[in-house]
Design a protein around this nucleic acid. Structure first.
Length: 140
DNA sequence: GCCAACGTTGGC
DNA sequence: GCCAACGTTGGC
């Protein structure tokens, strides 16, 4: 069973629309050790929610890990890693942070508990619930 | 090794 | 624009 994740990006820096256009991207620039540990735990084929922080504050789509962690060339010290991701599908209805906060079952999700972490795991029940809120009949 | 100061993230 | 959370830095 593949793991599920949530990855944040400010749409000003890199948006879901840009990922759709690029078809694939290097998820570089992570400079937090806990986030880096999560990147290292990812396997090819794992799925991740794509969350827009600051602007939107909503889960907008689902992407797939296309390459496992390898050194991030933008980190000159060579300490951090990145993965490659590719888009799978958008959510028919984006799921906002406010919606997730209003849902008692999501009270302990990393997105709310640890608001500054940019890459975090999502449990299978949370994954299924957010997919449902997003208008998907069946969670991928 | 402690802790205050400072910087960054991200929600509001 | 403000502020809370939290990670990092640097003086001691």
């Amino acid at each position: 069973m593949a793991n599920h994740w949530l990855m944040k990006s400010e749409p000003d820096a890199y948006s879901w629309q840009q990922l759709l256009k690029d078809k694939r991207t290097h998820w570089n620039g992570v400079r937090n050790h806990q986030a880096a540990l999560n990147l290292k735990a990812m396997k090819v084929g794992d799925l991740a929610f794509f969350y827009h922080s600051n602007e939107g504050k909503e889960v907008v789509g689902i992407c797939r890990i296309a390459r496992e962690a390898y050194p991030d060339p933008t980190d000159t010290a060579g300490r951090f890693v990145m993965v490659d991701v590719e888009p799978v599908q958008p959510l028919p209805t984006p799921v906002t942070l406010a919606q997730m906060k209003a849902e008692p079952k999501l009270a302990d999700i990393g997105l709310i508990r640890q608001s500054r972490l940019s890459v975090m795991p999502v449990s299978a029940p949370h994954w299924a619930l957010i997919c449902k809120l997003g208008g998907l009949k069946k969670a991928p």
